[in-house]
Simulated assay, not measured.
Amino acid sequence: MDLKEIQNLIKFVSNSGVAEVKLETGDVKITIRTTVEGNSPEVTYLQQASMPQAMPQAVAPAPAAAPAAPAAPAASEDNSKYVTIKSPMIGTFYRKPAPDKPSFIEVGSSIAKGDVLCVVEAMKLFNEIEAEISGKIVKILVDDMSPVEFDQPLFLVDPS
Protein backbone atom coordinates (compact mmCIF):
# COMPACT_ATOMS: atom_id res chain seq x y z
CA MET A 1 0.00 0.00 0.00
CA ASP A 2 1.56 3.29 -1.04
CA LEU A 3 1.34 6.73 0.57
CA LYS A 4 -1.28 8.02 -1.90
CA GLU A 5 -3.66 5.13 -1.07
CA ILE A 6 -3.20 5.75 2.66
CA GLN A 7 -3.91 9.48 2.23
CA ASN A 8 -7.07 8.70 0.25
CA LEU A 9 -8.19 6.29 2.98
CA ILE A 10 -7.61 8.97 5.64
CA LYS A 11 -9.68 11.48 3.65
CA PHE A 12 -12.50 8.95 3.18
CA VAL A 13 -12.59 8.11 6.90
CA SER A 14 -12.50 11.80 7.87
CA ASN A 15 -15.44 12.62 5.59
CA SER A 16 -17.52 9.58 6.52
CA GLY A 17 -17.82 10.37 10.22
CA VAL A 18 -16.65 6.86 11.20
CA ALA A 19 -14.97 6.66 14.61
CA GLU A 20 -12.46 3.92 13.77
CA VAL A 21 -11.35 1.84 10.78
CA LYS A 22 -8.94 -1.09 10.84
CA LEU A 23 -7.50 -2.42 7.58
CA GLU A 24 -5.28 -5.45 7.16
CA THR A 25 -3.93 -6.42 3.76
CA GLY A 26 -1.13 -8.95 3.57
CA ASP A 27 1.69 -7.70 5.78
CA VAL A 28 0.26 -4.18 6.24
CA LYS A 29 -2.02 -3.18 9.12
CA ILE A 30 -3.56 0.30 9.35
CA THR A 31 -5.81 1.71 12.08
CA ILE A 32 -7.44 5.14 11.64
CA ARG A 33 -9.23 6.69 14.63
CA THR A 34 -11.03 10.02 14.45
CA THR A 35 -11.64 12.10 17.53
CA VAL A 36 -15.15 12.84 18.76
CA GLU A 37 -14.76 16.52 17.92
CA GLY A 38 -13.64 15.57 14.40
CA ASN A 39 -10.40 17.54 14.78
CA SER A 40 -7.99 15.07 13.25
CA PRO A 41 -7.66 11.35 12.64
CA GLU A 42 -4.93 9.35 14.32
CA VAL A 43 -3.30 6.84 11.99
CA THR A 44 -1.38 3.81 13.14
CA TYR A 45 0.56 2.16 10.33
CA LEU A 46 2.20 -1.19 10.95
CA GLN A 47 4.08 -3.08 8.30
CA GLN A 48 5.39 -6.37 9.57
CA ALA A 49 8.98 -6.67 8.51
CA SER A 50 12.24 -7.88 9.98
CA MET A 51 12.25 -4.92 12.41
CA PRO A 52 9.58 -5.33 15.14
CA GLN A 53 9.57 -1.58 16.07
CA ALA A 54 8.18 -0.52 12.64
CA MET A 55 5.07 1.14 14.08
CA PRO A 56 5.26 4.90 13.45
CA GLN A 57 2.26 7.06 14.29
CA ALA A 58 1.18 9.88 12.00
CA VAL A 59 -1.50 12.48 12.43
CA ALA A 60 -3.00 14.04 9.31
CA PRO A 61 -5.15 17.16 9.42
CA ALA A 62 -8.84 16.58 8.85
CA PRO A 63 -10.93 18.95 6.78
CA ALA A 64 -13.34 21.07 8.79
CA ALA A 65 -16.62 19.21 8.89
CA ALA A 66 -20.04 20.24 10.06
CA PRO A 67 -21.45 18.18 12.92
CA ALA A 68 -23.13 15.08 11.57
CA ALA A 69 -26.89 14.84 11.85
CA PRO A 70 -28.18 11.84 13.79
CA ALA A 71 -28.53 8.82 11.52
CA ALA A 72 -31.70 7.55 13.16
CA PRO A 73 -34.77 9.42 14.37
CA ALA A 74 -35.17 9.91 18.10
CA ALA A 75 -36.81 6.98 19.81
CA SER A 76 -40.51 7.57 20.27
CA GLU A 77 -43.58 5.55 21.15
CA ASP A 78 -44.40 5.12 17.44
CA ASN A 79 -40.96 3.74 16.53
CA SER A 80 -40.89 1.28 19.46
CA LYS A 81 -43.05 -1.24 17.60
CA TYR A 82 -40.69 -1.25 14.59
CA VAL A 83 -37.63 -3.40 14.10
CA THR A 84 -34.45 -1.65 12.99
CA ILE A 85 -32.26 -3.34 10.38
CA LYS A 86 -28.66 -2.20 10.82
CA SER A 87 -25.57 -2.25 8.63
CA PRO A 88 -23.32 -5.24 9.34
CA MET A 89 -20.26 -3.38 8.00
CA ILE A 90 -18.65 -0.08 7.05
CA GLY A 91 -19.04 0.90 3.42
CA THR A 92 -21.18 2.72 0.88
CA PHE A 93 -24.95 2.11 0.89
CA TYR A 94 -26.71 1.47 -2.44
CA ARG A 95 -30.47 1.00 -2.85
CA LYS A 96 -30.09 -0.43 -6.40
CA PRO A 97 -28.14 -3.42 -7.73
CA ALA A 98 -26.91 -1.21 -10.63
CA PRO A 99 -27.43 2.43 -11.66
CA ASP A 100 -29.85 1.48 -14.44
CA LYS A 101 -31.87 -0.96 -12.30
CA PRO A 102 -34.83 -0.23 -9.97
CA SER A 103 -34.36 -0.05 -6.19
CA PHE A 104 -34.48 -3.31 -4.24
CA ILE A 105 -37.26 -1.94 -2.02
CA GLU A 106 -39.32 1.20 -1.41
CA VAL A 107 -41.18 2.51 1.63
CA GLY A 108 -44.31 0.37 1.91
CA SER A 109 -42.71 -2.71 0.31
CA SER A 110 -43.51 -6.05 1.92
CA ILE A 111 -40.40 -8.09 2.65
CA ALA A 112 -39.74 -11.69 3.64
CA LYS A 113 -36.82 -13.06 5.62
CA GLY A 114 -33.87 -13.44 3.23
CA ASP A 115 -34.99 -10.77 0.71
CA VAL A 116 -32.20 -8.47 -0.49
CA LEU A 117 -32.82 -4.95 0.84
CA CYS A 118 -29.72 -3.10 -0.33
CA VAL A 119 -26.02 -3.44 -1.15
CA VAL A 120 -23.11 -2.17 0.96
CA GLU A 121 -19.89 -1.75 -1.00
CA ALA A 122 -16.69 -2.17 0.98
CA MET A 123 -13.28 -2.22 -0.70
CA LYS A 124 -14.73 -2.92 -4.17
CA LEU A 125 -16.85 -5.82 -2.87
CA PHE A 126 -20.63 -5.47 -3.11
CA ASN A 127 -22.32 -7.19 -0.17
CA GLU A 128 -26.05 -7.88 -0.36
CA ILE A 129 -27.85 -7.07 2.89
CA GLU A 130 -30.77 -9.44 3.45
CA ALA A 131 -33.86 -9.02 5.60
CA GLU A 132 -33.62 -10.61 9.03
CA ILE A 133 -37.40 -10.60 9.47
CA SER A 134 -40.59 -10.46 7.43
CA GLY A 135 -42.71 -7.33 7.45
CA LYS A 136 -43.28 -3.99 5.75
CA ILE A 137 -40.69 -1.24 5.17
CA VAL A 138 -41.79 1.83 7.15
CA LYS A 139 -38.77 4.06 6.61
CA ILE A 140 -35.44 4.08 4.77
CA LEU A 141 -32.98 5.85 7.08
CA VAL A 142 -30.00 6.28 4.71
CA ASP A 143 -29.69 8.11 1.40
CA ASP A 144 -28.54 6.20 -1.68
CA MET A 145 -24.75 6.23 -2.23
CA SER A 146 -24.04 7.42 1.34
CA PRO A 147 -21.27 6.10 3.58
CA VAL A 148 -22.53 3.92 6.44
CA GLU A 149 -20.94 2.76 9.66
CA PHE A 150 -21.02 -0.63 11.32
CA ASP A 151 -24.31 -1.07 13.21
CA GLN A 152 -25.85 2.09 11.68
CA PRO A 153 -29.64 1.84 11.32
CA LEU A 154 -30.68 1.42 7.66
CA PHE A 155 -34.39 0.53 7.69
CA LEU A 156 -37.38 0.53 10.02
CA VAL A 157 -39.61 -2.52 9.51
CA ASP A 158 -43.10 -3.13 10.83
CA PRO A 159 -43.10 -6.88 11.62
CA SER A 160 -46.89 -7.11 12.07
Rank of each mutant, 00 (worst) to 15 (best):
Q7A: 04
L9R: 08
I10Q: 01
I10D: 01
F12G: 01
V13S: 09
V13H: 09
S14K: 05
S14D: 08
S16P: 06
S16N: 03
G17T: 01
G17E: 00
V18F: 01
A19F: 10
A19N: 12
A19E: 13
K22M: 03
L23M: 09
L23Q: 11
E24M: 09
T25G: 07
G26S: 04
V28R: 03
V28M: 01
T31K: 15
T34H: 10
T35A: 02
T35R: 03
E37T: 13
G38Y: 06
S40D: 03
S40W: 02
P41S: 02
E42W: 06
T44D: 08
T44C: 11
T44P: 06
T44S: 14
Y45G: 00
Y45F: 11
Y45V: 08
L46T: 13
Q47W: 08
Q48H: 09
Q48D: 03
A49C: 10
A49M: 06
A49S: 14
S50R: 15
S50L: 14
S50M: 12
M51P: 07
M51F: 12
P52L: 02
Q53F: 15
A54F: 12
M55T: 10
P56N: 03
P56Y: 05
A58Y: 14
A58P: 01
A58W: 12
V59H: 08
V59I: 10
V59L: 04
A62D: 01
A62T: 06
A62R: 03
A62K: 11
A64N: 04
A64H: 06
P67G: 06
A68C: 00
A71P: 08
A72C: 04
A72E: 12
A72P: 07
A72W: 04
P73L: 00
A74Q: 13
A75F: 08
A75E: 08
A75I: 06
A75T: 07
S76M: 03
